[in-house]
Nucleic acid binder design. Structure first.
Lengths: 209, 209, 209, 209
DNA sequence: TATGAATGAGCGTTCATTCAT
DNA sequence: AATGAATGAACGCTCATTCAT
């Protein structure tokens, strides 16, 4: 029960473990303070390694940052895919996916800010990791909305358009979730999103009052 | 022979003007590179003042940053209010407001990232300026949705809920606008948002297929 | 008479003076420990300035190093030119020049090592400052030997050849001077060099014993 | 079933060989980049051993550096002795020795810089290896010049003085050889050195013009 | 004995802030 | 009041050396 968790000298873990420890530590710190405000010594300390070990595993602080983003993106993707495949009905797939998406960002506090930070810092260098991935998964999303439209045909709207609205709803939710008084559960919020997304707020026949 | 003579060359700006020049310069630079990557020397240069003058006008780089955010928030508010008041019909007010909101962020590139940066860096110190203001204007938004519900009564949804969905749609649009292939005008996007928001994508009567 | 020379805060000297102070401090330290072993903090301390001031005046440690070399090379050149012009007779010009050259390196201990360090470190980047300058002054040296040969005609040797031998003698002297037991004054050494250079060590007529 | 079995794949080098490999690798790298700019990892790689092995064989990078200098000094000495003994006539011994000396440094590029680097870095600690050895061989050099003076008696110059001039000529040649346009072979340069060293550039009888 | 992953002191450089002019 | 030279704390990264395997 000592707080001083017996810091062994040179624990000699596997390379895989080391990398993971470092990314895990970095991830928390980046999420808490942002990329620039996190210093490498702190990451090393938190990961329980020397600073040199950081640099043996990652070419630079920037690389480390991107590695943490990558890790989160892998998790996010896994979470979302799992959710989508957990349901058969297209609309239920959608609901599950939204839930998973928003839930992921709720459980990984501030992660969305990291993706946005990346966009700011590395703007000149390359495309943002997050949006690159988003793009890559567009086809899967579109397929989902095509399935939905097959069940609920509507020639006044395209799958792409639905995908866009869906994207707005989800990303808006993620962005605002930490700042809206949390009077509702994520589940409830998603249900509301579904209701409006499906039927709007205007009752049929009210339109031309 | 006054000490004040011959200074004609230096345009003798008022304190107010100076501050404005500095904020304007800072604003562009912050938007382009982010808070941390923008250095005070560059701001001073761009504003055409010495670095000391920066610090006479703003206690710190952070203050300056917040002043630029404040300026943008003032502009945003003015833009939105103007839009809202330009229409009579509640739904048209909403459409105009959405359009103004999204248009503002389209014209002030990267501004949304700045608000998010603030959230990351100054987390510990205080609440974010953007979300503080957002909160402050909630009542106005809510009033709008109450008006709308008066015209289109629906006891299955509250004004607050509509406000939340509206917030998600708008912020999602802002966040994604720079990253979605721009096949549509803002106008068109807002129209789509309105359509779905009002009626959903499912045609009446299709529901229980 | 205080040893604590009243370290005024921010003495605000002229830019010229600052640069000079820094180069002077750097020069001593580089000469004493070499380029790589001298750290910038030490230079700043010795120059009585902050480390930032170093970097306001010189783009990098490397630039500073080259600036000190340049300074020494300027001095060396001035010393040598002054010596050469102090005499009329070509042979006396030569003697005076040799004396000045060797004397310079005796008074600026370890400077020759610095020139050689430069060659080692910056090999890839560009030509050595020292040898670039040496090359540049070759014409002046050659002119001197042509004058000498005009007085002492000898068609078995060229001015260039004499210049080469002279260069070897002088640089050899500089290199070895710190390591040979100093039994003789520089004056005496130069006189010996002159004697051998002029007549060799073999007496006329002894040759074909 | 000996422990020594089956290790055929690893060439089973002797400790002696290992050391030699390391010194050989280090030697090249030091000569190319200098002491400080050469890093131990690179040496280990080039020598085909692990970094630990470096430190089992040499207490520190510095020791390794000195070992390479020692190696070169051994080679230099062997080369010079061999040359000296290849001739009978004292003057021819001298010519051969000069040739060997200069040739050695021509074939071992940048070695002279290493000796000078040592002087800079390890100044405080002890005397330079190169000059220590030089000192040690002074007696042999002096003996040579005494032999020469026996054949060409000259009571206006001592063997020590000739030795000094010879040292200057040779070291100057080594130092400058990489920087003078190589219009002549080493052989030719040495012949010129001999001619001037023996007779000077002034023809007998010209003196008192 | 040989290895190379791990370490951390050390260093060059930057940049927000101050202050003499 | 305005300036910009001066400051020095802070930080990313390196590399000689150690030590668990």
């Amino acid at each position: 029960m000592t707080t001083e968790k017996a810091k062994l000298k040179r624990p000699q873990k596997s390379a895989e473990e080391r990398r993971h420890d470092i990314v895990a530590a970095a991830s928390e710190l980046f999420a808490e303070h942002g990329f620039q405000s996190t210093d490498t010594q702190t990451v090393a300390d938190k990961a329980g390694v020397g600073k040199g070990t950081l640099y043996r595993n990652f070419k630079s602080k920037e690389e480390l940052f991107k590695a943490t983003l990558d890790m989160h993106l892998d998790e996010l993707r896994a979470t979302v895919v799992r959710a989508r495949e957990s349901e058969q009905d297209p609309l239920e797939k959608l609901r599950a996916t939204w839930l998973a998406y928003i839930g992921f960002f709720e459980q990984n506090n501030n992660i969305i800010e990291l993706f946005i930070e990346e966009r700011l810092y590395f703007r000149d260098q390359e495309r943002s990791l997050y949006f690159t991935r988003l793009e890559r998964s567009r086809d899967e999303w579109r397929a989902l909305f095509e399935d939905i439209l097959r069940v609920y045909p509507n020639d006044e709207v395209t799958a792409s358009e639905l995908m866009d609205i869906s994207g707005q709803l989800v990303h808006g939710a993620v962005l605002l979730s930490q700042h809206t008084a949390i009077t509702q559960s994520t589940r409830q919020r998603v249900d509301l999103m579904m209701r409006i997304f499906m039927h709007g707020f205007i009752k049929p026949g009210q339109d031309n009052i």
